[in-house]
Nucleic acid binder design. Structure first.
Lengths: 64, 64
DNA sequence: ACTAAAAGTTAAGTGTGCTTTACATCTCTA
DNA sequence: TAGAGATGTAAAGCACACTTAACTTTTAGT
């Protein structure tokens, strides 16, 4: 599962910690998701979509 | 997390077991998701979206 | 009413999403 | 070059996504 969190953060000049705060998860969780260590839960994906005003599919891309 | 799996199944006249097969999960998993016992993982949500040719948001609705 | 298939439910087990704590590395600027 | 903020990484632990197996209840056809 790929994702655009790092780019979306960069566009807004946010740190991992700031994004973590906005999504109410730990900084390590954001780091791990950005680095592809694991996939977010569906509720967390929805939260990110709401935050960035994008669809889940625009933020996260299934690699088959 | 609400979802339209039961309706989408009904439209196609599929059983829970058939949908489970198509999504490569157990029948109990489909039942539990339909009954709202837990949320699917993001990869499983993507798989369902591909299967039904719908967006994740069209199948699963976050209730806040 | 019988039967069979479908749906519902429960219990015990495995893997992973996410946590806290802690420490290491990188980058920038004073 | 020292220090601060940002990022990366690791370990231990908890909650939940998902499994298999087994059983009960509902639904529909004959």
């Amino acid at each position: 599962m790929k994702n655009k969190l790092k780019v979306l953060r960069a566009e807004r000049d946010w740190t991992q910690a700031q994004l973590a705060d906005a999504l109410e998860v730990s900084r390590q969780t954001i780091n791990a998701i950005e680095k592809g260590k694991f996939d977010p839960s569906l509720p967390l994906a929805f939260k990110a979509a709401r935050l960035f005003k994008l669809s889940i599919e625009e933020i996260f891309q299934d690699e088959e």
